[in-house]
């Protein structure tokens, strides 16, 4: 039964970055009301943890879905070099006009990692703090209507 099970590989990465939650579409007062402390004009930072899950056939020669070195290199290039020790709203083009909430960060990370050539991206999970985390799996796995 070669296809009796489905395997996924999960890997965690860390990056530190600052952001300011501020929407140009809202007034000063509304921004403060919606985002509270996170609207502080000087920004603030987090130690983000990114969890990436990929799936695919396990190569019998290597025992691997994807070589970790390849996945690490891809995530390093596509995510960590771009986000680590950066100000997300000031230095990352994707957040010039998009509020860098961790919801939006998840969407951007998913979009950037989806083209990983060696396995299928199943989903990303981002921990903003140990108490807050966000996940995105793409739109193809929406729960069916009840």
């Amino acid at each position: 039964m070669p296809h009796a099970v489905k395997l996924e590989l999960g890997r965690r990465y860390r990056f530190a970055a600052s952001h300011r939650l501020h929407s140009e579409q809202l007034s000063e007062e509304a921004n403060w009301r919606v985002y509270g402390k996170c609207n502080n004009p000087y920004g603030h930072g987090h130690n983000y943890v990114l969890e990436v899950r990929v799936s695919g056939k396990v190569d019998p020669a290597t025992g691997m879905i994807a070589n970790l070195a390849d996945l690490d290199e891809f995530v390093e290039r596509e995510i960590l070099e771009l986000f680590d020790h950066k100000s997300l709203h000031e230095e990352v083009a994707a957040f010039k006009d998009v509020v860098p909430t961790t919801e939006n960060l998840c969407l951007e990370i998913y979009k950037r990692l989806k083209p990983f050539p060696n396995a299928r991206l199943e989903g990303v999970r981002v921990e903003e703090t140990a108490n807050n985390s966000f996940e995105y799996f793409g739109e193809q796995q929406e729960a069916p209507e009840p």
Binding site: K6, L9, R53, S55, G123
Partner: peptide, 13 residues
């Protein structure tokens, strides 16, 4: 680093 194993066809992930 971890691996997840599911029954194939289950809406696993």
């Amino acid at each position: 680093l971890f691996a997840d194993c599911y029954r194939n066809g289950a809406s696993a992930s």
